[in-house]
Design a protein around this nucleic acid. Structure first.
Lengths: 140, 140
DNA sequence: TATTGTTATACTCTATAACTATA
DNA sequence: TATAGTTATAGAGTATAACAATA
């Protein structure tokens, strides 16, 4: 028996799943007061990087294009996003944030970041850096 | 200027959000082939710890009791869970896994754990331990 | 032919409000 | 009165299949 106080193999997986659920709750809690579902907040925040076509946006959000159509419909009705016809391809359009959508996206983003920073405030800097670079390498 | 190559303050938050989204996708991908939504898989896996009442289960899943009622209805129709009347409180019932539900819950659990273990396989043991205990302290 | 995006349809998830039965 | 759970209702998220328009 080599393992002593070392974590078992499933421990990291299990704690990551729990963390995911906690972050989902936190995401829902921060979106709701802004009048957004977590999915809507996600969509708006993705658009902070610039306008995107429906196909690319659906890929980033991991949802079908047909599902995205109705989401964009609802956000467009609320004047949070706009469909801009592509000048080069008459089939395609770009989804972009309106001024209202931009402001709300920033609010939603800042709210989550604030909550997470509060949640992780007690971690030592070295631990924060270890986690940050480890998760980055996983995501890459 | 003290910071050198150190991560900025929002970096940990940002990478945690990205990790959450990645894990959500992974969770959906592993649940789907089993005929489960991620929410259903979550519910079944929570019940691996033993039967629970509706109120407590709704608290753990962070959903309203009324939302849970319909989820349990659907799972009960598929004989994956059962409502057991409480012997002491005639208002209350315990939700428990059926044999089919138990088997499926294990499958769902193992599938996610396997995928996450694969995803994190390249991390050195010391990093894994750091992350595990850091996230545990955050969740506590 | 392939791609972009939409429509039609059917479920599932979720919340709010009102309710029943029991404690 | 308070709690456990349900019902009724409405809206949102999601997938599949079929489609129109354009490339």
């Amino acid at each position: 028996m080599v393992t002593t106080t070392a974590a078992r193999d499933t421990d990291l997986a299990s704690v990551l799943v729990q963390t995911m659920h906690r972050l989902q709750d936190l995401h829902a809690e921060t979106s709701r007061p802004l009048g957004l579902t977590p999915q809507q907040a996600h969509l708006l925040c993705v658009l902070l990087g610039g306008p995107l076509g429906m196909t690319e946006l659906s890929r980033i959000l991991s949802i079908e294009r047909s599902s995205l159509t109705s989401m964009v419909d609802r956000l467009e009705r609320r004047t949070l996003v706009a469909r801009i016809p592509s000048p080069t391809d008459r089939r395609a359009s770009q989804i972009e944030l309106t001024p209202d959508g931009l402001a709300l996206a920033h609010e939603a983003h800042d709210a989550v970041v604030d909550r997470i920073n509060t949640m992780t405030a007690d971690l030592p800097a070295s631990t924060r850096n270890t986690i940050t670079s480890a998760l980055r390498s996983i995501l890459a």
